[in-house]
Design a protein around this nucleic acid. Structure first.
Lengths: 244, 244
DNA sequence: CGCCGACTTGAGCAATCTCAATCATGGTGG
DNA sequence: CCACCATGATTGAGATTGCTCAAGTCGGCG
């Protein structure tokens, strides 16, 4: 139970009116989780609307046959909106902290009420949903149309800070999770990393060094086979606001 | 340009207040399309919020390398919400009629304004977004965790009318599209249909006869390997409303 | 030192794709 | 009525991709 941070700083609430923000703050609870701790389970009654404050929270859905599909990895400022069923009654996916993480919990019932009263809050939620949809469409697109190597290339690309054509940075979480996120087995991911080595992507445990971001971007579009149309950076991370 | 149908009858607008509905109707345009006609193109400026009135509209996204991933097939009462980018400026996917179809076009600018003024409309959009998210999560889940046979089984299952354990019905669109929807090639789909024949799913061109729906449901959970946890009907089609 | 977890690598296998041939089926024009 | 074609669907054979299982490496850390 740590201090309540200013809600205004969260992307989700950036343009919500002050009064609503104040009301939200009134019953907001902050909770911290250690690595691997469960935020909520798939099937639980959805009593809270949850927003990530810091760290990463993994959303995954386990099918009746037992295998688990990673749905998203949410980070600071994102809600766990996609965890809710369309009727908002239960969580359709489970949520678990990756590394230490803290979240904001808002009473779902009260949140629903504020949604009715505040158009800026409603708008914020609509924008948030649009971002989630956008990210999911990107995921479906890459699952259907790209092989493991290309998906990894795109993922790394999405992590590259803009600006320089060569860059280095650290992977946000371990390779087991990256594999799950890309929808492949760890062994396959490992081999994909090996292939990227040939086009100037060096990896050292968790550190990545990209020789040429543009070279990498070309890889996403299919190695060397085709090569036209302007590049378009994939959005494993997203931003902005929606509808009209 | 046909008659404007009562907006109230569309699932999307079912619980929107009368005044807003009236305002929506004021500038709503109905447009009809023949099979294969383009409703809008990927990258177009998003000047309309579009809702399907009847028939099917295919949403697909073509990557820079040219191959096209089917994102969704929308039917009566559904909006083409997921076509919008998070900032609502352009369409991130293209829309095309499958067979004859008609849609409602609402000025995006005006729609945005009404969204601010009417909490019931905002709520309707939030619910719609939640349904889209739910469907997309199901799709990601099945792409990551199931093979082609299981995906087809689940798809057919989602088309079975409830009630009887055996049933027959007609496929809503041709196998080319079903293949795209499931993310496999037509040949693979054809072989998957052949396998389902062994477990009592007979196909005659476009007509399907399912001997035992429960037998089919078992197939989705992994053929015969595992068999616990209560069944849960996949949602290629969805319904209901959201967020506490 | 020795174990453990995370990662890598190898070899064989299964699922899916690709390319190509074949088979309805429905419509068209003679 | 029939020959002919176009389209969608099926089937086969071989190439690819990714998976499984198993072994091996590497870096902490007790």
């Amino acid at each position: 139970m740590s201090e309540l941070p200013p809600l205004r700083d969260l992307q989700l609430f950036a343009s919500v009116d002050a009064q609503t923000l104040q009301r939200l703050a009134r019953d907001a609870k902050v909770e911290t989780f250690a690595d691997g701790e469960v935020v909520f389970r798939q099937g639980d009654k959805a009593v809270f609307f949850v927003v990530v404050l810091h760290g990463y929270v993994k959303l995954s859905r386990t099918a009746s046959c037992g295998d688990e599909a990673l749905v998203n990895i949410c980070t600071a400022g994102e809600s766990l909106y996609e965890a809710l069923t369309p009727d908002g009654a239960i969580y359709r996916v489970g949520a678990e902290a990756i590394g230490e993480a803290s979240v904001l919990k808002l009473s779902a019932a009260r949140f629903g009420g504020l949604l009715r009263d505040s158009s800026s809050l409603a708008r914020a939620v609509i924008d948030e949903a649009a971002r989630k949809i956008s990210a999911l469409i990107s995921e479906v697109e890459s699952l259907k149309g790209q092989n493991a190597d290309q998906r990894l290339a795109q993922f790394i690309l999405s992590l590259c800070p803009g600006g320089e054509d060569s860059c280095c940075f650290r992977l946000p979480y371990d390779k087991r999770l990256i594999a799950a996120r890309l929808g492949v087995k760890q062994e396959t991911l490992s081999r994909a990393f090996a292939k990227l080595r040939d086009i100037g992507v060096r990896t050292e445990t968790r550190d990545i060094f990209v020789e040429s971001v543009s070279r990498l971007a070309a890889e996403c579009r299919g190695g060397d086979r085709h090569a036209h149309l302007p590049s378009e950076r994939g959005d494993f991370l997203e931003s902005r606001n929606v509808v009209a």
